[in-house]
Design a protein around this nucleic acid. Structure first.
Lengths: 231, 231
DNA sequence: GACTAAATTTCGGTA
DNA sequence: TACCGAAGTTTAGTC
């Protein structure tokens, strides 16, 4: 890992063309050859970057570039996509290299899989007399998150999202269309469950006769005494 | 901008829970208070981070942490979402601060807007006798990318994507449904145009009678002699 | 500010 | 390896 702070301009030509005018920025050169160009604001996305696998070669600036104050030219080329990134260095203000070693990686918990697991085990938060048929019920166009029977014995397909967007309603609609062709299952109702349901998604869902269910993750976690938590 | 290379472990509790075991990593502390935790591999996404606005406070480790070798505890809290990130510093190997100043920002070219402009000007790549009605044809549920007439005089709605996914087909389907309610326009056909069309999207589109059109960006650029390019 | 669609998306899982 | 869907998505544009 090499970290350089430099006055530089950057040109990228690949899936799009992009240019960064001269300014002071942080350049991160990772061990796998990739490079990130960061400014002092903004979130984690760099202003410009090149993904591995790629190679960086240092070149002398041509006469024109020299006249503009360029002292080094870094040419970064992508092995697979033929994208090219040029970093025109005007002045290096800080330069530090350090061997980091391999990273043990991130341990995650609490994503959609866990939400699905919790809801499948606690369908009573939706319908007191509901019973699970199965999670990840497989169909030709993909798995239905949860297939269940409600208190009256009717089949219900539950689509689960952390954030309930229009996309999710469309997805559930496709599943319902397919499931309702199956005489064994028909009629199948839809339930759109999420920690947060966007108004437009709710409107679309209800317009299609799909029930909306807002989930409280903390509450579900509270019901779940068996699962071992990180915190 | 402060850049620190340190042996550290990280805990995040917010929209999910995540833990990074002890290892040497790069910590980038931006001027707006945000922090990024990077390893030596992977692409531009940090292992862990906190978006602005957030505040970092340095604390003394408790006895238990001290016994484990922790020398500093950084507590990063999000102002809006109440997410919390803890960085447990075991050893600081490099520490450098530098004022970067404001960044003039990125100048982009070649994205969907440009693809739309090019296709609108060169409809002949789709149908030799086609004519443009208008770009960004506005409807109640959003703008149709391109509305045109084909060689036979029939109205056609073209939805344009860089990458043709199922979402795009759904979007176009909604537009077509709406446009076909208008007796002035009816009947309206659909064309799904993209630089790359995913097999599932193609299947869904063709199943709904929507024509698929794969665009060659380089070729379209070649037809376009008027436009001034960055490269 | 809320919402929608795009992204040089990246990332993880599965067939 | 390719494809598909989720992401602590982020980001940019529009209403």
């Amino acid at each position: 890992m090499r970290v350089v702070i430099a006055r530089c301009s950057v040109d990228y030509a690949g899936r799009l063309s992009a240019h960064l005018p001269l300014a002071t920025r942080l350049l991160m050169l990772k061990g796998d050859g990739s490079i990130l160009v960061h400014s002092d604001t903004g979130s984690y996305k760099p202003l410009n970057w090149m993904n591995p696998p790629c190679t960086i070669s240092k070149r002398e600036p041509d006469e024109e570039q020299k006249a503009l104050g360029v002292t080094e030219v870094w040419r970064v080329s992508q092995a697979k996509t033929a994208d090219i990134l040029y970093v025109l260095i005007h002045e290096i203000l800080h330069d530090h290299e350090h061997h980091l070693g391999e990273d043990p990686g991130l341990i995650k918990d609490g994503v959609e899989a866990h939400l699905q697991e919790l809801l499948a085990e606690h369908l009573e938060v939706w319908d007191e007399n509901a019973s699970l048929i199965r999670r990840e019920y497989f169909t030709a166009i993909g798995p239905v998150d949860i297939l269940a029977k409600d208190g009256s014995g009717a089949t219900v397909a539950i689509e689960l999202k952390r954030r309930g967007d229009i996309d999710g309603v469309e997805q559930l609609t496709r599943y319902l269309e397919l499931l309702n062709r199956d005489p064994q299952l028909r009629p199948v109702r839809g339930v759109f469950a999420a920690q947060e349901i966007k108004p437009q998604a709710r409107t679309l869902a209800e317009d299609r006769g799909i029930e909306c269910l807002v989930l409280n993750y903390e509450e579900l976690r509270g019901l779940d005494t068996s699962h071992n938590r990180l915190f």
